[in-house]
Amino acid sequence: MSHTTSSKLRYVIPAIVYLLLWEALALYLDSRVLLVSPVEVATRLIELSGTAEFWFSVLFSIERIFLGLIIAIAVSFISGVLSARFTFFRDMIEPVVMTMKATPVASIVILVLIWVSSRNLSVVISFMMVFPVMHTSFYEGIANVDISYLEMAKVYGVRPWKRIRYLYLPGLAQSFESGITIALGLCFKSGIAAEVIAVPDGSIGEKLYEAKLYLATADLFAWTLSIIILAKVFEKGLLFITGRLIRKMEIS
């Protein structure tokens, strides 16, 4: 058996086992409210994806979560650089980051709802979830640059832009790669959770809320599955771009 085939089977076999268990449990419970079968979920997802409303909701939620993500990456990059450069800035920002990390999402959602409209809540929530993770990643990416390289750059009179390009950027890109995997999962989960609480019109969160209201379990599973797929697509896309950038920086 080839290596590729055996590595694929490592993922396929558990997936099949869990799908069969799910199907068996759904048959055993025999209640479309308690648990729907995987076939029903797939059918419902296909039905939903054939409607314009589905894509409108996806677009509505994605654009806001993604906007929050982009703003958070930009701000955390600046704050990470400033923290690594200025101890005073780091001392000032650290309590903010720690507080943002420790505060429950629900508390932030309720507080932010007082400040902004429910339509734009997921932008703020996505930002607040991503910022502390990416701030720490960027800060560590800079702070962990090997001191022996920095000494070398000082002795050799390496120009500032070359220091950034060859010493800091590769470390930053790797920190970005590890941070974004965690941040993306967080921003999608918390962004949608915020929408479920605030119920903005036309969002995925609203659809999940309605599924709960009408005990439409198949819809709940189908929407959840669509969120997982979307988060994975974004993660793979960003990691692909980052990976290519890192390789380009290493050998060029």
């Binding site: 022996s148 390289y149 000494e151 070398m152 060859y166 010493l167 590769p170 920086m249 290493e250 050998i251 060029s252």
Partner: peptide, 11 residues
Amino acid sequence: FQEDRLIGNMS
């Protein structure tokens, strides 16, 4: 330097 201080993952 006594150590090479080359950046290993670069060309």
